[in-house]
C-alpha cells in the first residue's frame, strides 16, 4: 500500500470493465465449450480432426477470455500485461510439443493402441485392441 488513498475506481484497468463484454465472453465461452463437448461425445469425426477441432475451439476460448475477460489489449494501461502473457506462450509450446513428441514415440514402441484405434472399437477388451494395433502395423 505504498500509493495513497486514491479511489481505486479511477484506475485505468477498472475502466476496461463492461457488462456487455462480460456477457459476450460468457456466452461465447459456453458456446465454444459446449461445441467441443458435443464433438467429443458425438465421436463421429476421425481422431486426427477431432483433436484438431477441439484444439481450435480451445484456442478460441482462450483468446476470447484473454480479450473480453482479462482485457488483454495494446492500450497503455494493459500492454505490459499482454506482453507478459505472450512471453508465457513458449511454455505452452514446450509443454505440449514435448508431450506430443514423447507420446508419439511411446505409442509406436508399446502395444498401447493408438487413440483412434481404441475409439473405433471402444467396446473391445484391451488384448483385442492391441492385437488389432499389431495387425495394422504389420499391414
Amino acid at each position: 500500500m505504498t500509493h495513497s488513498a486514491e479511489n481505486p475506481l479511477h484506475h485505468p484497468e477498472v475502466h476496461q470493465a463492461s457488462l456487455s463484454g462480460y456477457v459476450a465472453n460468457f456466452l461465447i465461452t459456453v458456446l465454444v465449450m459446449t461445441a467441443a463437448l458435443w464433438l467429443a461425445r458425438d465421436n463421429s469425426l476421425p481422431a486426427g480432426s477431432l483433436v484438431g477441432w477441439t484444439s481450435l475451439l480451445a484456442l478460441v476460448a482462450v483468446l476470447v477470455q484473454a480479450y473480453l475477460l482479462l482485457h488483454m489489449n495494446w492500450s497503455k494501461a494493459q500492454i505490459w500485461h499482454t506482453v507478459a502473457m505472450i512471453l508465457f506462450v513458449p511454455l505452452f509450446v514446450v509443454m505440449i510439443g514435448l508431450t506430443m513428441w514423447m507420446f508419439h514415440g511411446l505409442y509406436q514402441r508399446t502395444a498401447i493402441a493408438m487413440p483412434h484405434q481404441t475409439m473405433a472399437a471402444p467396446m473391445h477388451p484391451a488384448p483385442a485392441a492391441s492385437a488389432a494395433a499389431h495387425t495394422v502395423k504389420a499391414a
Binding site: L91, V94, M95, L98, W101, M102, G105, L106, Q108, R109, T110
Partner: peptide, 18 residues
C-alpha cells in the same frame, strides 16, 4: 525446470532420442 520432467519416468519406454 520446464524441460526436464520426463526424467521422473525414464522407464516409460519413450524413444531413446526422447
Amino acid at each position: 525446470s520446464w524441460g526436464v520432467w520426463l526424467h521422473h519416468f525414464f522407464t516409460m519406454a519413450a524413444e531413446p532420442s526422447v
